[in-house]
Amino acid sequence: MTQRRIAVVTGASSGIGRATARRLAADGFEVICAARRTDRIEALAQEIGGRALTCDVTKADDIAALAAAVGDRLDVLVANAGGAIGTETVATAKLEEWRTMYDTNVIGVAASIQTLLPALTKAHGVIITIGSVAGMVAYEGGAGYCGVKAAVHSLMMSLRLELFDQPVRVCEIDPGMVASDEFSLVRFHGDEQKAAAVYAGVEAPLTQEDIAETVAFVAAQPEHVNIDQLVVRPRAQAAAHKVHRTS
């Protein structure tokens, strides 16, 4: 009897993480939905036939509990938990918000990988991080978020070198403009008008399902095929600073 493949998706309670959990479940994975909001991941796990685990990736005990739930084999880790907070300049930045972003986007990703690496190695698995084009090009008001995503990119490049002789793939997906359900709302502290302005006039930004589809593509490649870095933008976004708006 073939053992069912297992995937972990962190930050699975909304947005790209939730869409990814659904997409991987459709491909036959048993998905462990890990996030802080228990009610949401329990509903998601019931919907897709997965497992829910309340997990804050910034807490060592939660990461240890995640590893215990996984066991000794893990086929796919989607290190998605993270997000952006604020758009202040460096001169006016709320540094506590920066610390929160670093703890979640960088330390949380590193802790997830570090703890689950033995299980990934045993299964000849794949690590997929959800980065951002913000980690490639800085912009005004983005130093905090651009910095954390640049750090994730560096983390993945180092990890790929360190694991060059191990049976683990190390893959990075860097989305551009994605109209997910919470990303911009969180960034603008719940200001719906400011969040909507990010996508104003853009006829077809990426959706969270588009990125989930990309994750599924990366995960489905043969063991010898490593998608080092995959940049995904909507056609309307030629670069981080150049977006076609019809109004």
Rank of each mutant, 00 (worst) to 15 (best):
M136I: 00
V106R: 05
M156V: 01
V148I: 11
G142W: 03
G131N: 13
A143P: 00
A93L: 13
S112H: 02
I107G: 01
V106K: 11
A91I: 00
R99Y: 06
K94S: 02
V148H: 00
A68H: 06
R73E: 14
I107P: 05
D75C: 10
L120M: 10
L163H: 09
T87P: 00
R99G: 01
T121Q: 09
E162G: 04
V106E: 10
C146W: 00
R73V: 14
G135I: 00
L120I: 13
G141V: 03
H124C: 13
G141E: 07
L95Q: 02
M136G: 04
V148K: 02
T129E: 08
I127E: 11
V137Q: 15
Q114G: 02
A110F: 13
G82A: 07
M157N: 12
G144N: 13
A111G: 03
I107A: 11
M157R: 14
E140Y: 02
G135C: 00
A81M: 09
E162M: 05
L74W: 04
D75A: 05
V152D: 11
G82Q: 03
C146P: 09
V148C: 07
R73D: 13
A84D: 06
G86M: 12
D75L: 05
D75G: 08
T89S: 15
L74S: 06
L159V: 07
A123N: 10
